[in-house]
Amino acid sequence: MYDVTKPEHDVDQAETKISARDVQVYYGDTHAIKDVNVDIADKTVTSFIGPSGCGKSTFLRCINRMNDTIDICRVEGEIRIDGQDIYAPSVDPVQLRAKVGMVFQKPNPFPKSIYDNVAYGPKIHGMTRNKAELDEVVETALRGAGLWDEVKDRLDTPGTGLSGGQQQRLCIARAVATQPEVLLMDEPCSALDPIATALIEDLIDGLKKQFSVVIVTHSMQQAARISQKTAFFHLGNLVEYGDTDMIFTNPQDERTENYITGRTG
């Protein structure tokens, strides 16, 4: 059914990085996320799948508290990263977001140079002491995003001048430049062509050595290709969560089966 290569699975279970308990999200009067409980492992790729409007992106945005920026949004329950409740009053969303990077659906480079795009995070957090250190951080991040060789000669040209795929990798570089521990990706390939998508997928596979990567995707093939764990969301509920193999070959829930076999969606 899927002509894809099975991802090589890390057999040894990594420790839990993110754990969510009874998470509820309300948009005004709408109950967008209901009772979500999930443990996300470190150094793995976890994908969230489900029909559009099922709440997978909303839940993703809870993990770095991006929902705080929406006036009418309210989050209940608890989400812990490394045991620390990120919604505790003592936690500063600014610091949290530096540790939990995010890549968005549409490439959104700032209208600045490539260099300044990547250096933006390290600069505002004061992570480097001098220009040489900053240069190094930028280079590392760009290499990490597989973009260095393409742009090293034109770091001072605007990031908006790159192609769509390059822009998205630039955004990944921008996110990893602050040395996060978790990388959230909200349908990072949906605006890209197949070749650019393949490049990014390769990149994600490499990134999991360093981070816990959580990716929202509408493409089940993509989830199957790149993730070790998969969570299936439906109408704001987390219906099923487990090893990607299990979800795709032997789903426990009828709704999951209907979705992955294409009967709903």
């Binding site: 991006m66 920026t69 977001r97 995010m102 933006y120 995070g121 505002i124 957090h125 602050t178």
Partner: peptide, 26 residues
């Protein structure tokens, strides 16, 4: 575009930094 604002907030910028360093120049 809102995406620029999100991009800046997501790397841990404060609102002030977002508006002064990203939104305002844009």
């Amino acid at each position: 575009p809102r995406s620029l604002r999100d991009g800046s907030l997501a790397v841990g910028a404060t609102s002030a930094e977002t508006v002064l360093k990203v939104l305002f120049p844009a």
